[in-house]
Design a protein around this nucleic acid. Structure first.
Lengths: 142, 142
DNA sequence: ATCCATTGTAACACATATTATTACATCTAT
DNA sequence: ATAGATGTAATAATATGTGTTACAATGGAT
């Protein structure tokens, strides 16, 4: 079990948009060439990022740009843009209410797993696009 | 995207096994009645827990018991028993190596996401079956 | 020794989520 | 108007998760 490729792909897209701003027109086809996915996947993901207010896409003419500084965009913003808001773990629907374990498991385990998810969100919020871009620029191994 | 029901179900099973030890024979059918899943799901999960060395199952006669104290079983043990060992996020296979973002994204983003997964594992390791059982016993709302 | 409840496991069915692809209406600078 | 681009729906292919049936193997009880 692992999270889908959407967060990594969306992050890749955002990094490219910023990195190539002013140098290339960052169209879905251009971005697809770097990420190596179908341009429609790029457009769908850009749509999610646009809905989340992270990018502006030039309809018709093409190309995208960030709506704010990479310093002010975190992986949590990206995560929320492309993933559903839900519990980290899926719970069994109808445990037996006549069993002391069955009638308490969701609350007892759920509250603890919720904290773990919160930690994950905090960790994602601590990573900015700016940090990633600097790492890409500085640690580039061509 | 969320993790499957396996960790919660496996935890439920372990709690029942300990809670009802000596009072009921914890067969797959008995456990299935508390969790509310098909007995075969219970047997499969018990098989994973057995492989991980967390439980002993009495073949033929039926019933299961923990191999060690609930104090010494953490949710990380359970997680590892029922989930594959893999990255938290799935990465795109072949990003463009000629693009500075494409050729660095996996390393730059991957190392950071790996730390997040490690935090998650640490959090899971801090929760024992004993703690959960106490919570179930003490906070029981019949 | 046989019986019977139970486990272990394979096989299959089904639903859902993910990713890839095609198609096409719409948009906008030129 | 045209050309290149986006937005989005529809579809397909694949993978994963979950439910179910079936049955051989196990081991205590009789």
């Amino acid at each position: 079990m692992q999270f889908s490729v959407r967060l990594p792909v969306a992050t890749h897209i955002l990094l490219c948009i910023e990195k190539f701003q002013g140098k290339y027109k960052t169209t879905s086809t251009f971005l697809a060439g770097s990420v190596n996915v179908h341009p429609v996947i790029i457009r769908k993901t850009l749509g999610q990022l646009r809905t989340a207010g992270l990018v502006e896409v030039a309809a018709g003419v093409g190309g995208a740009k960030l709506t704010r500084s990479p310093k002010d965009i975190t992986l949590l913003d990206v995560f929320r843009a492309v993933e559903e808001e839900e519990d980290l773990f899926h719970f069994q629907e109808n445990p037996n209410p006549q069993c002391p374990v069955g009638r308490n498991i969701h609350r007892v385990l759920g509250t603890r797993l919720e904290k773990i998810k919160q930690h994950m969100m905090d960790d994602l919020a601590a990573i900015t696009l700016d940090e990633l871009l600097n790492a890409v620029n500085e640690e580039d191994v061509p």
